Simulated assay, not measured.
Amino acid sequence: MLTAQEPEGEDRRGAEVIPSAGGRVRKIIHIDMDAFYASVEQRDNRELRGKPVAVGHPEARGVVAAASYEARKFGVHSAMPSVTAKRKCPDLIFVPHRFDVYRAVSQQIHAIFAEYTPLIEPLSLDEAYLDVTENLKGMELATEIAEEIRARIKAETRLTASAGVSYNKFLAKIASDQRKPDGMFVITPKHGAAFVEALPVKKFHGVGPATAQKMQKLGIETGADLKARDLSFLQQHFGKSGPWFYWIARGIDEREVKPDRTRKSVGAEDTFREDIHDIEAARACLQSLISKVWRYCKDNGMRGKTVTLKVKWADFTQITRSKTAAAPVASAAELAEIAGLLLSPIFPVSKGIRLLGVTLSCLDHADEGSQPQLALAL
Rank of each mutant, 00 (worst) to 15 (best):
V101H: 13
Y167V: 07
P118A: 06
R158W: 08
R158P: 08
F272A: 15
A249V: 01
A366T: 12
R43D: 10
A224C: 08
S291T: 15
Q5E: 08
P328G: 06
S322F: 01
M215R: 02
K310H: 01
P122G: 09
D126A: 15
V105S: 13
S265L: 03
K203V: 02
A85G: 04
S322K: 05
A151Y: 13
L199Q: 02
G304K: 04
V257C: 04
T222C: 01
I112K: 09
V266M: 09
L218Q: 06
E144S: 15
I31G: 05
R354C: 02
A85P: 00
A142C: 10
Q107F: 15
A114I: 12
K173V: 00
A4M: 09
Q178H: 13
M1R: 10
C362P: 09
K203E: 04
T271C: 03
G22D: 14
H277K: 06
I248S: 00
I220E: 09
K88T: 11
P52L: 04
I187D: 03
A268Q: 07
F74G: 10
T222Y: 00
G22A: 14
G267M: 02
R255M: 03
A332N: 11
R255D: 03
V63G: 00
I319C: 03
I338N: 02
I145M: 03
R158V: 06
S82E: 02
R13D: 14
V329A: 03
K73P: 02
C285F: 09
A38M: 01
A15L: 12
I109G: 11
T143H: 14
E147M: 06
G22I: 09
G56C: 05
R13K: 09
S291N: 13
D230Y: 14
E197A: 04
P328F: 07
L141V: 12
R26C: 10
A60P: 00
F185E: 08
G242L: 04
S162I: 11
P200W: 03
Q42F: 11
E254H: 11
F113P: 06
W294T: 06
R72D: 04
P118Q: 08
Q108E: 15
G183F: 08
S176D: 08
S361K: 03
P189E: 01
I29V: 14
A366N: 13
G352N: 03
T157Q: 10
P189Q: 01
A327W: 13
L374W: 07
R43E: 12
Q5C: 12
L125D: 14
K214T: 07
P96D: 09
L309A: 08
V83K: 09
R283N: 11
L335M: 03
G23D: 13
P243H: 07
M80W: 00
C297K: 11
I338Y: 04
R261E: 07
K227D: 01
I112F: 10
A104H: 07
V266L: 08
E148V: 09
K86P: 00
S39C: 05
G23C: 08
I145P: 08
P96R: 11
C285D: 14
V53T: 03
A111V: 10
G304I: 01
E41T: 06
I174A: 01
E115G: 12
V329M: 07
